[in-house]
Nucleic acid binder design. Structure first.
Length: 373
DNA sequence: TCTGGGGTCCTAGGACCC
DNA sequence: TCTGGGGTCCTAGGACCC
């Protein structure tokens, strides 16, 4: 028998802001969506009373809750708190998986002798997150990961839902199919057309249930793709000139290259993402014969992809660069190039060190951004 | 003064190889 | 001269999640 605890932090970013500034407690705190542009990334429960939720455009949130306290995103701060949460989780099991910055699954299988029954352990974990970090969270305990996640969602906020072994199907059956992670608006519509409204309806059709609802206890969720590192930005003002776009592209490349080097990874595939002002969005990628983590090489590829694919004269509102097919070691190619790479590595190590010491703008490069012509 | 930024996963078609 | 499938890699597009 397997046991999983799914932990989901309540209004995570907003809660962190309230910990750092206790005068915000109980108030409608809204993270993200300032300046009218952008969207809400987190809203305290006081703010949700006004109908505000994450992913809502900022101007709309402002309209619903004019007196709301709008704060900018501070990803690094949230990441630090996230690490503290996961450090607590890690004390209860060697098998902890982060699903996102504010959600994780703790495999409690076989931890009973050390910490007691799964439910007791879950209660203790949630209490500790609250008492040690000041952060509210919700949890779900069940014999499968999916059921545990659904249970945690039902527990929100500040709730712990326990699904005893053997009662999984009874627990799930009355719930709407859109509660299943992975079932979004499109799939929901398709399922409705088949007359499937509840998870119970879905369980009646094994071939569909198998596809959308993985209730297996032991299977590791498949991880086919290795992870990717990307950076994208919505432009302050739309651009039509490729040379101007290349300036932005270079900044994105520096960020992506820096992160690759920090993690000692080389990318074999590079992608440029383009969004026009009419919101038509597409991506173009290229696989390299030899993987790279160097700004200059990355830039050459993505700027080439940009120039080949951006429609002349169309205004672009977003640009993105991402690196995928990541590998930790190198490339197979002649010694001569290896020498070249060694010197590259030295150079970029120096650049990264300077940036770390003196800030992101400490070291510029001969890039389109800095060209005078 | 519409619609962020970070991702994962799945599918499908074409190239290419055997 | 016509004709197989199977497998893998690459690219593009899209659904979905937080």
């Amino acid at each position: 028998m397997s046991w999983y605890l799914h932990i989901d932090m309540d209004a995570f970013f907003a809660s962190v802001e309230q910990v750092l500034d206790p005068s915000l407690k109980g108030k409608p705190v809204i993270v993200g969506g300032r300046n009218g542009r952008g969207v809400v990334t987190s809203a305290s429960y006081a703010a949700r009373k006004f109908g505000i939720h994450s992913a809502m455009p900022g101007f709309q949130a402002k309209k619903l809750c004019p007196h709301g306290i709008f704060l900018p995103n501070r990803r690094r701060v949230y990441a630090e708190f996230s690490a503290k949460v996961f450090a607590i989780l890690g004390q209860y099991s060697p098998e902890v998986r982060a699903l996102s910055i504010d959600e994780g699954i703790v495999d409690l299988t076989g931890t009973e002798r050390l910490f007691g029954p799964p439910l007791k352990t879950a209660e203790q974990i949630i209490r500790r997150i609250e008492s040690e970090l000041g952060l509210p969270s919700s949890g779900g305990v069940s014999t499968s990961r999916v059921t545990a996640k659904i249970a945690a969602t039902l527990g929100k906020p500040r709730g712990l839902v326990y699904v005893p072994s053997g009662s999984e199907a009874d627990f799930l059956a009355p719930l709407a199919v859109e509660m299943i992670p992975g079932v979004g608006p499109k799939t929901h519509k398709t399922l409705l057309q088949h007359g499937i409204k509840t998870i119970g309806d879905l369980l009646q059709k094994p071939e569909l249930a198998e596809r959308y609802l993985d209730l297996s206890e032991h299977d590791e969720p498949k991880r086919r793709h290795d992870h990717s590192i990307g950076n994208e930005t919505t432009l302050d003002k739309p651009l039509k000139e490729t040379t101007e776009m290349e300036g932005v592209l270079w900044e994105l490349v520096e960020e992506v290259g820096g992160r690759l080097r920090k993690e000692s990874l080389y990318a074999r595939c590079l992608t440029v993402k383009i969004r026009y002002t009419d919101f038509h969005t597409f991506a173009r990628s290229r696989t390299l014969s030899s993987p790279t983590c160097f700004d200059k090489e990355i830039f050459e590829v993505v700027s080439d992809l940009l120039r080949q694919n951006v429609a002349a004269g169309r205004a672009v509102r977003l640009l993105g660069v991402s690196a995928s097919a990541l590998q930790s070691t190198g490339w197979q190619e002649p010694l001569l190039n290896q020498e070249k790479r060694k010197s590259f590595e030295k150079l970029y190590q120096g650049i990264d060190d300077l940036r770390l010491k003196y800030g992101e703008d400490a070291v510029g490069a001969a890039t389109p951004r800095n060209r005078t012509s």
